[in-house]
Design a protein around this nucleic acid. Structure first.
Lengths: 203, 203
DNA sequence: ATCGTTCCCTAACAAGTGTTTGGTAGGTTA
DNA sequence: TAACCTACCAAACACTTGTTAGGGAACGAT
C-alpha cells in the first residue's frame, strides 16, 4: 500500500512540473531531436544525469508533455461538442477554445506541430494518431453539418476547407506570445471574422 | 585555367541534383537533425562517406536545397510584384504562385517550415531572415494597399491577417502531394475564395 | 544517533554522429 | 600503353549522444 506523502497530495510533484515546462520550451525552440538532455539540464540549473532521477528517459518527458496537453485539449473540445450548438456556433466555440489552449500550452502545441507526424508512427505515441482522427471527425463533421444547414457555402471543398482552418488555427502557436498585444479571445474573433466573412469588402 | 568538361556544360552535375532531391525528401520527412548522413546515403544506394565526394558537409546540402528553392521562389514573386496589379489581383497572383512553388518544391518548403526559425540565427543561413523580411514586406504591403483602396476590410488587424494568410498557404506543403486530386491552381482558387469571401453563407 | 527519503553530482559507458583518409574499379583522353 | 578523372568503397577518426551506477549532502522522522 503506497504511502501518501504530503507532497504527493498535490497531483504532480512541483519540481517535476517545472522541469517539464523548461523541457517543453527547449523542445519547442530547437526541435525534439536537436535538443540534448544536457541542454535541458543546463536550463534547469542541474546536470544531465540528474534529470533521470525525475524521468525515465528523454522520450518520456516528451510523452508527458504531449499527453498532458492533449488531455486538457479534449476536455475543452468535448465540452464544446456536447453543448448542442449549431454548426456556426460550434466552429466559433472550437476556434476560441483552440486559441485558449495555445495560450495555455504554447510550447506543447509548437512541439505537437513539428513532431506529431513522425511521432505518431511510434507505438508509444499512438494516441497522437487517435487524437488526430477525433480532431478531423469533430471539425469535418461540423463543417458538413453547416453545409447541410446552409450555414456554410456548398461550393467549397469541405475537406480542403477543413485543412486550411485546422492549420491556420494551430500554426498560430509559432508566433503567439502570451501576454502580448492580443488576447486569445481577440485573436479568435479576428480569425473567425476572416474565415467566416472573408477579407474582401462587399459591394 | 579550369577545363570545360562536356558534363559540366549542364549547369549542375546530374548526380548532384539527384542526391539533393533524396536528401530533401529525408530531411522533410524526418527533420534535419534527426536525419543521419548514413540514412541519406542508404536512400541513394551508397555509403555515408561517398556523399562527401559531392558535398562539403551535411549542412551544405541543406543550404543548397533551401537557397535553390528561395531563388526560384523570388523569381516568381518578383515577377508578380513587378506586374503592377491591383491589391486584390496581387494577392491572388501571390497565392497562386505560392501553391505552384509548393507543387515544385514540396520537400524544400516542408523543411523551410520546420527549420527556418532556428536556422535563421546561424550566419550561414542569414538569407533566410532576409527572405522573411522581403516576404513580410510584399504581403503586408499589398494588404495595406488593399485596405487603403477599400478592396479589403478596414476593421481587421492587418498584421494578424497577414500571419493567418501566410501560414495557411505554406503549411499546405505538409499535406499536399503532387499528382493528387487537386492541382495547385485549383487549391489556390479554393483558398482565395475562402479568404476573400469567407465560408459563411451570405444572407 | 540512526534511518530513510529526496534530490542532486561525479564519472563513466556504449552507441551513434559527421567527417576524413586512402584506395580502387572503370571509363576517357593523350 | 600510360595518365587521368569520376564516383564510389572501406575503415577509421574525434566527438556527441542518451543513459547508468554509485555516492553524498540535507533534512525530517523515529
Amino acid at each position: 500500500m503506497p504511502k501518501n506523502k504530503k507532497q504527493q497530495v498535490t497531483a504532480v510533484p512541483e519540481r517535476r512540473g517545472e522541469l517539464l515546462a523548461t523541457a517543453a520550451e527547449v523542445f519547442a525552440a530547437q526541435g525534439y531531436n536537436a535538443t540534448t538532455v544536457r541542454r535541458i539540464a543546463d536550463e534547469a540549473g542541474m546536470l544531465a544525469g540528474s534529470l533521470y532521477y525525475h524521468f525515465d528517459s528523454k522520450e518520456s518527458m516528451l510523452d508527458e508533455i504531449l499527453s498532458t496537453f492533449l488531455t486538457e485539449l479534449w476536455q475543452g473540445y468535448d465540452a464544446v461538442l456536447a453543448a448542442g450548438l449549431g454548426p456556426r456556433e460550434t466552429i466559433e466555440a472550437l476556434v476560441t477554445e483552440s486559441f485558449r489552449e495555445i495560450d495555455r500550452h504554447r510550447a506543447a502545441v509548437a512541439i505537437y506541430q513539428k513532431e506529431s507526424r513522425h511521432l505518431a508512427e511510434l507505438p508509444r505515441f499512438g494516441y497522437l494518431a487517435d487524437s488526430q482522427r477525433k480532431f478531423e471527425q469533430a471539425w469535418l463533421g461540423t463543417l458538413e453539418r453547416g453545409v447541410a444547414a446552409k450555414a456554410f457555402r456548398a461550393d467549397l471543398d469541405v475537406r480542403l476547407t477543413y485543412r486550411f482552418v485546422r492549420d491556420t488555427v494551430w500554426v498560430a502557436a509559432s508566433w503567439y506570445r502570451p501576454g502580448g498585444q492580443h488576447s486569445p479571445e481577440e485573436i479568435a474573433r479576428q480569425y473567425l471574422s476572416m474565415v467566416l466573412d472573408g477579407i474582401a469588402v462587399r459591394e
